[in-house]
Amino acid sequence: MSDILKYFRQNRLPHIWCPGCGHGTATGALVRAIAKLKLDKNKVVVVSGIGCSSRAPGYLDFDTLHTTHGRALAFATGIKLSRPDLKVIVLTGDGDCTAIGGNHFIHAARRNIDITTIILNNNIYGMTSGQYSPMTPKGMLGTTAPYGNVERCFDLAKLAIAAGATYVGRATTYHATLLEDLIGKALINKGFSVVEAVDQCPTYMGRKNKLGTAVDMLNWLKDRAVNVKAAAVMAPEKLEGKFLVGELYNQPEPEFTAEYMAMAEQVRRKYDNFQGGVRECGQNSD
């Protein structure tokens, strides 16, 4: 326990999340994974955007950056490119990451920049009290979907894989140990790693959709989750309405900051250092 507590800013606790919220469980899984890897507190930066999920870094005893809505990955890209030696973790929500931040998400994945991104996906905008997000399942209710959500939702893992992430996993807060394992592997992967933590928001998602208590919601998550290994031998119709959990993708590829540094090293070998004010732009014809 003390192993884990040392990664928290204990004077910042208790947290502001609602009773029964899954974000604490997911944050706990992250911290346990970090503790297991014995990461140096001084070499970890945690970055978040805006929303319930994004309050998590304030409780963690690292260098922490609470940015603007949707932009955590873009800020994190600057940090990582500047200091490739730091372990950079992004904590983001489903609205933060897949709506307003969707573009940064696919481009961070495309670059395969070594950032571990954990999406606390409660399928709803909690901070603003219950609007539907790009991760709200079709038909479910939100304050801005009073007659049921008519939009389709993302399969975030597939999106991440298609965009170029090299490690992708998903678990729910019911599967807290699996979640911790996946985050641990994501932290080890040198590249863009995504772990979707599907969690419960009893206050808005639950109440609006009559899903019951936090415990009922955990069961609701459990009932819809199918382990990827089990799914491999299941008939497609059995998977209707379910989602996969487990390690969904793990294919290392060259990492962006390492590639950049290698390029820069080659360039440096070729040119003398810049002395200031002595060179000119290359000239195009017109």
Binding site: V47, L65, A74, F75, T77, G78, H104
Partner: peptide, 19 residues
């Protein structure tokens, strides 16, 4: 770095400045 848009560009330089 050439970012995906100008929002990302200013975000990235703020991140880098913090280092």
């Amino acid at each position: 770095i050439q970012m995906e848009d100008e929002i990302g560009s200013i975000a990235a330089i703020i991140g880098a400045s913090l280092t």
